[in-house]
Design a protein around this nucleic acid. Structure first.
Length: 521
RNA sequence: GAUCUCGUAGCUCAGCUGGUAGAGCAUCUGACUUUUAAUCAGAGGGUCCCGGGUUCGAGCCCCGGCGAGAUCACCA
């Protein structure tokens, strides 16, 4: 074929593939690079000996010798050509550093094609390169790597958004479309500053949590995600089907009942950090799959668990943020314990002036109408109290606050209060107006447990879709005997939202749930 | 699930009572060996989310759909 034929064929092909002009340019460069005898996707290891952040942090003008032979790898994020020399920015896992490429240093001989052709023409923003050279400071004060040798490590075929930051730190042309950011998180992570840090904070939070528990001798465990009975919480499950067994299975909405079975089996403390799945609405605090921590410790009660929770959060914030104080947009939250403990009745009285502790279901329903709180007929006493709490109290709980001693109706897995009739030993921890933890003195009386779950079946009959299911095997486990135990659950995503100051759960999930791609893609 | 707002070049966005689409960055060509939102001169690039309708004519108006965000409902 002649060149013309090749071009015609190529044009036809790219039209068919609907490539943008910039994608065509990159594919042409890819071919040109191969024709130069350079592999655009080389196999061999490229050894680095430092990172951008280390150089920027440690370079001293009076001791340039320490950085005479640096080797770095990363993406080209900007190019400022100046004819026979060029400034560019290299981005690696630690950040960005300016590099300086001078034609006659990179091509000392007669053949200048490596600079003129490869670097000037065929290296594009986003390409992965490896460099070696020495560090210096330019006339305008920028710490820069003067490149002596240059290796293409991987060619990119698509154009990254170009985000620029000016001398005042103002960001221009940020990649902001949330749909594109979340569908193409790899691009978001590459071009938007600070996204990596959210996930580093997330990872460190989980690490801190794990080491806190491990130090105390509690065992990290894994329990089934595919369950035959979706127990342990009030929520709609995802349903699936196992072909070989020909039976329905549910993705777990909670792992509580399995973890308690392990306490029955003799472990003193077990915990699991993992995904839960709830087939419910999505908004900026709910994703269909989310991560929870659940921990159960034998021979403890919820008073002990409150202290443990304070210690845990204090340690996490110290390790992850270096302080117990978290700066949010409009306030500072201090995780240093102890946190106030207020009963749910007291909290409602505090914010409404009304004592509801002795009210009947009928009286509570009337009160809800008076307070303009929407209620439904199938709501029981506990649910009504929860509605009032959610409407009038929750948003006021900014600093970490334990709300304790909930009405029995809504909490079928918690032990009855040791002294207060009609209540259970439960606490929830509220921070910045949101619940982030939930804990009980666990119900270990099998007969009481069975009655409480039967009550849930009654609620289900009344039309409560989310009433808890009966789990006979769990009851049987309790009949074999469970030691007094306290359990705690923490919503990891929401905790990370607070620690990173993010208002949307999508921001703290690498890949938040999205609908199937739009035709835009 | 409901309501509101949005969807235009690779990215961020303009687009007039409805008259066959623009800017900045990016890309391409050229100049420039310490620049930095590099600069200067020129050029190319579009399924205006999809499908109907109204109209001589639709990016714009109407209907339906898809996707996203916000608010509400449900929930953690």
């Amino acid at each position: 074929m002649t060149n013309l034929h090749l071009i015609a064929y190529f044009c036809h092909k790219i039209k068919f593939m609907q490539l943008s002009d910039q994608e065509i340019v990159r594919r042409e460069s890819l071919n040109a690079i191969r024709e130069m005898g350079i592999d655009p996707y080389p196999h061999e290891e490229f050894k680095v000996n430092t990172y951008s952040g280390e150089i920027v942090e440690n370079f001293k003008d009076d001791q340039p010798d320490a950085f005479q032979e640096v080797r770095l790898a990363g993406r080209i994020m900007s190019k400022r050509g100046k004819g026979k020399a060029m400034f560019a920015e290299l981005q690696d896992s630690q950040g960005r550093i300016q590099i300086y490429l001078r034609r006659d240093d990179i091509c000392p001989g007669e053949d200048k094609s490596l600079y003129n052709e490869l670097i000037k023409r065929h290296i594009h923003l986003g390409d992965f390169i490896g460099i070696s050279g020495f560090v210096f400071r330019t006339g305008v004060g920028e710490i820069t790597v003067h490149v002596k040798s240059f290796t293409l490590l991987s060619k990119t075929l698509r154009t990254l958004p170009v985000v620029k930051t000016d001398s005042e730190g103002k960001v221009h042309h940020a990649f902001t479309d949330p749909e594109l950011r979340f569908r193409m998180r790899y691009v978001d992570l590459t071009v938007n500053e600070g996204i990596r840090d959210i996930f580093i904070t997330r990872s460190r939070t989980i690490t801190a949590m794990r080491s806190f528990f491990d130090q105390r001798g509690w065992l990290e465990v894994e329990t089934p995600i595919l369950q035959t009975i979706h127990g342990g919480a009030a929520a709609k499950p995802f349903k699936t089907h196992h072909h070989t067994l020909d039976m329905p299975l549910y993705l777990r909405i909670a792992n509580e009942l399995h973890l308690k079975r392990l306490i029955v089996g003799g472990f003193d403390g077990v915990y699991e950090i993992g995904k839960m799945f709830r087939n419910e609405g999505m908004d900026r605090t709910h994703n269909p799959e989310f991560t929870s921590l659940e921990i159960y410790v034998a021979y403890k009660d919820y008073h002990w668990m409150m202290k443990m929770t304070e210690n845990l959060l204090e340690e996490i914030t110290r390790k992850v943020l270096g302080t117990t104080e978290v700066e949010l947009a409009d306030q500072t939250i201090d995780f240093k314990g102890p946190y106030p403990r207020i009963s749910i009745y007291e909290s409602i009285e505090k914010y409404t002036g009304i004592d509801i502790s002795k009210m009947t279901e009928v009286q509570l329903r009337e009160l809800c109408h008076k307070l303009h709180i929407g209620v439904e007929d199938n709501m029981g006493r506990g649910k009504l109290i929860d509605e009032i709490f959610g409407e009038k109290v929750e948003k006021n709980l900014i600093q970490p606050t334990f709300i304790i001693d909930y009405p029995i109706e809504m909490t079928p897995l918690a032990k009855k209060h040791r002294s207060e009739e009609g209540l259970v030993e439960r606490f929830e921890l509220f921070v910045n107006g949101k619940e982030i933890a939930n804990a009980y003195t666990e119900l270990n009386d099998p007969i009481d447990q069975k009655e409480r779950l039967e009550l849930q079946l009654e609620l289900a009959k009344r039309g409560d879709e989310e009433a808890m299911a009966m789990d006979e095997d769990f009851i049987q486990a309790l009949e074999y005997g469970m030691p007094p135990t306290s359990g705690l659950g923490i919503g990891i995503d929401r905790l990370v939202m607070i620690l990173t100051g993010k208002k949307s759960i999508q921001e703290v999930l690498f890949f938040p749930q999205m609908r199937a791609k739009s035709s835009k893609e």
